[in-house]
Design a protein around this nucleic acid. Structure first.
Length: 346
DNA sequence: CAGACGTGGCT
DNA sequence: TAGCCAAGTCT
């Protein structure tokens, strides 16, 4: 392989042999383009989320809602429950809004600009869908591309200040043809070779063009600012059981776990303080330690059993609690409450 | 613009 | 193991 072959060509050649096989992809250089609906759905799911985590969710979603028009007609609560566990729940709320808008438009826009106007679609996703699903030349910059470009050009300026330069440099190496394959090739390279730690430079098709490799310190790029310390908050969740069912609530659309089902309980803060939904003999059955992006939470779980469903609300059969679509935090809290009441019944 | 917004896997 | 990190978007 010639060293003066353009970076884009070397990368595309590498991709032809090393592309990952993924459910939402067509093979490299395939004649037919992938379904825009599947490309869009996968891109939304993959935002800040690993391929491994997305796999089963993607399969369930396309099985249940095979076309964007099906998703547009979905029951919102069912969709939120199907998303439970994937995180960043604003994505699920935007997903259904976007599906409805696309259905109203009669299909996905094929341009970056048109895609960018849809809910939940930002600069990255608009470029990715335009390139992958519609073959448009678009400069696709995600965290993988930022890392690969930072290393190729040994960019010393830390993120996020270096973003404009990274984008400009990515533009210079993006080819006119096969822009979608090129974008996916950059992401595959970042995910499997040009990794954040212990990059496998010996397997990289671009080492001869890589400034960081020449310096001998690829792992030092991209330069990032120091992380801030996470504060710790406390909260309480109430497992109220009656007639083999448990009382669930729906969290407000704004804020943490917005729109998701949850156990009753007050706000989270410095001290755990929340009035129980009803006076009862509440037992402390455990504490869930959960780390979010910007704080850590200690959630104390209280449990009680009462006869004859004492208050109005959504009473969910405990045997079917897995289907309630609780986000992970509350799924863990529910496991504690359920185990405690089963223990008590023995 | 910097902070809010989840979760699980890897080192 | 505690921290880092993942195909970002919205405000």
């Amino acid at each position: 392989m010639s060293v003066d072959m353009p970076v884009s060509q070397r990368l595309l050649d590498w991709y032809d042999d090393h592309a990952r096989t993924l459910p939402w992809r067509t093979p490299p250089g395939a004649a037919e383009r992938p379904d825009p609906y599947r490309v869009w759905l996968s891109e939304i799911m993959l935002q800040q989320t690993t391929v491994a985590a997305v796999g089963p969710y993607f399969a369930r979603f396309v099985g249940r809602w095979p076309m964007v028009t099906d998703l547009a007609a979905a029951d919102e609560a069912e969709l939120m429950a199907a998303w439970a566990g994937l995180g960043y729940y604003a994505r699920a709320r935007n997903l259904i809004a976007c599906a409805r808008e696309v259905t109203r438009l009669g299909g996905f826009p094929s341009t970056e600009e048109g895609l960018r106007a849809l809910p939940g679609i930002g600069a990255y996703t608009a470029a990715a869908v335009a390139a992958i699903a519609f073959g448009e030349r678009a400069v696709v910059v995600d965290a993988n591309v930022e890392r690969v470009v930072s290393r190729l050009f040994a960019i010393a300026e830390p993120l996020p200040g270096s973003r404009p330069r990274i984008r400009a440099l990515a533009d210079t190496i993006t080819p006119d043809a096969r822009a979608g394959d090129f974008a996916q090739a950059m992401m595959d390279l970042g995910a499997t070779v040009c990794t954040p730690r212990n990059p496998r430079c010996y397997a990289c098709p671009l080492t001869s063009a890589c400034a960081a490799y020449a310096e001998g310190n690829p792992e030092t790029y991209p330069v990032k600012p120091a992380k801030k310390a996470k504060p710790r908050r406390r909260g309480i969740a109430y497992w109220l059981e009656s007639e083999s069912a448990v009382l669930l609530v729906r969290r407000p659309d704004k804020g943490m776990l917005g729109g998701m089902r949850a156990l009753p309980g007050g706000d989270w803060g410095e001290t755990p303080e929340a009035a129980p939904p009803i006076p009862a003999c509440w037992r402390h059955v455990g504490t869930v330690e959960h780390v979010f992006t910007h704080f850590a939470l200690s959630l104390d779980v209280m449990a009680a059993e009462l006869p004859a469903r004492p208050i109005e609300g959504e009473w969910w059969p405990i045997d079917l609690i897995e289907q309630a679509g609780l986000p992970t935090l509350y799924a863990r809290a529910a496991a504690l409450g359920r185990a405690s009441s089963e223990m008590l019944a023995l």
